[in-house]
Design a protein around this nucleic acid. Structure first.
Lengths: 334, 334
DNA sequence: CTGAAAGCGCTTACAG
DNA sequence: CTGAAAGCGCTTACAG
């Protein structure tokens, strides 16, 4: 059973396909098609259940009403929540999302960009990784709207939407210090991206500002993509260091691993040992005791991304790129 | 800067676009193109960075190498994990995924199916909802591969991959009973889909088989899509019923809400009060005490879905639909 | 007020 | 061993 085409509709209605096309695209008035013809054609379209072939339309017009979303890992709740919000908002404006996970792998990210390019996506929302600067620059040269989020690539002059990680982690450490903590650890990843480096910088700056000794041994950089068992082992070693009286985790999954370690070690979170997580996670609030965390304003980030994208898509000429930094919020739970 | 087309490559290589097309599609040998020409054209393609326009290819061939994934909500970790696994496996076979969330809304699901249709996706993976039987039947009539997962639509004779929820919830209740529980509650949703009904049926059957009184008042059917605050209120009322000594939650998010209630009420999970969750969640293991749960074998489900899809896509003729029921696992943590 | 025709970038049956 | 041409289903400049 072959799908109907615009030709079939034109035939049934005894008009040209031009006329049908104008009516479908709401240009009937503008092209002064008679009301009678409009009515007739619309009825036939509805009765027959005809749906225009978007592929043909894309080939002709060069755009697709699809926005490509490239993220690190859809199964990470930070990304899946953002994806859902972006999807909702895009959908309301008539755009669909194609997404894919890079797994933090440069080759996969490049392939994805090429793939999206060959599918003629109208715009790109990318949580980028180091090493794809050039590919992104090419997109920009082709005048495609590109919005980076979560992570920025400082070499690039793109649109960027992200949280202020430096300030957030500074404040987290500050709150530890104000509660009398002296040996504050940071558990972070070894990936070399700005938003992770900022978290480290904020941590270090707070330590220094408050005249605490900076101790290299309290900073644990977990290799990205390693099995959780190894991560747990490394964190365990850190926690066995009796000095540590507070820990800031730089990502939610590291915090989860850390909490598992605490559970295994039967080490309590109390006035002698404090924990702050990142990006929030349902497990944080439920944990006994509840875990304080740094929350990125997901709704606001998604909203801003879509706003920028739509502005770019609507603009006839290139609008200046914007770097939008949104404050993250330290949620103290105890 | 316009993208290169096959014409540009043909021009540069001084051959016809037919020849270039054959080479791109690996039909050069079969069409006995000379090695010299193949080499020359391939070099030009690589040097120029030419990528075929997939939109044009799709229009011509009628397929897209895209699989449409329609789920309830990507931000639910059950779905985002499945999505990630499906994406990985599909990607390895050269297929991309477009996904979208239905939010359990029939109109949105219908729109999505139409949208995917108009984009000529090659196959559909759908976590369906009641009310789209007809739309799915139409896809099947058009001979498009369709795999339902998570939820089945019994009226339809489609491929289906899902866990055995009846047995799983039966076993959960059985384990409560063996531990001497007498007043076992079920917190479930009011959505009228098979996989939820099965969980209820398994619960009830176990109660009856073990000659416990079935108590309507211990079954809480939470309206889908209501604000969590209302859910919490309803669960709170249930828990204040002093009789309840065990609870089975039929979904992970209901269990999360339930755990929040227990925390608020300061009600302990111990030998007097047991809890089993569903679908697992990182918070379950971390919880104090750890929460037992029914785990669906995500990897196996994703693997099976992709296997069925690829078999269908490879088949010249329609292969019989299969209903594959995979056992779920009761994970006891305490 | 409406239509014939070109063209988007491919694939492939047919011809030589 | 290789190419000219039709056609996938649309949109739109042009003509009347």
């Amino acid at each position: 059973m072959k799908a109907l085409s615009i030709k079939d509709i034109a035939l049934k209605a005894n008009v040209s396909i031009t006329t049908v096309s104008f009516i479908i695209n709401g240009k009937a008035k503008e092209k002064s098609i008679s009301d009678a013809v409009i009515k007739k054609v619309q009825k036939i379209i509805i009765d027959s259940g005809y749906k225009p072939n978007q592929i043909a339309r894309s080939l002709r017009t060069g755009n697709s009403n699809i926005i490509g979303l490239i993220i690190e890992d859809i199964s990470n709740s930070f990304f899946s929540r953002i994806a859902r919000l972006i999807e909702d908002k895009a959908y309301k404006k008539g755009y669909k999302i194609i997404y894919s996970s890079t797994e933090n792998n440069v080759e996969k990210a490049q392939e994805l960009i090429n793939l999206f390019k060959s599918r003629k996506v109208d715009a790109y929302i990318i949580s980028p990784i180091k090493g794809i600067e050039e590919d992104i620059q090419i997109l920009m040269n082709e005048n495609k709207p590109v919005i980076l989020f979560d992570r920025n690539l400082p070499q690039l002059n793109t649109n960027y939407v992200g949280a202020n990680h430096f300030v957030a982690s500074y404040q987290a450490v500050q709150s530890f210090i104000k509660n009398g903590k002296q040996n504050i650890a940071l558990v972070t990843t070894d990936i070399d991206v700005q938003q992770i480096i900022e978290r480290y910088d904020g941590y270090k700056k707070a330590i220094v500002d408050y005249a605490l000794p900076y101790q290299e041994s309290l900073v644990l950089k977990i290799p990205f993509n390693q099995a959780e068992a190894s991560t747990i082992k490394q964190i365990k070693t850190l926690f066995k260091n009796k000095e540590v009286d507070a820990v800031l985790f730089a990502t939610n999954y590291l915090a989860i691993s850390g909490l598992k370690v605490l559970k295994e070690l039967d080490k309590k979170i109390d006035e002698n040992f404090s924990v702050i997580g990142y990006d929030d996670h349902e497990a944080f609030e439920l944990h006994t005791p509840s875990i304080s965390t740094i929350q990125q304003p997901l709704e606001e980030i998604a909203e801003t991304i879509i706003r920028l994208i739509l502005a770019q898509l609507a603009a006839k000429t290139k609008i200046p790129d914007q770097q939008i930094i949104i404050p993250a919020k330290l949620i103290i739970r105890n």
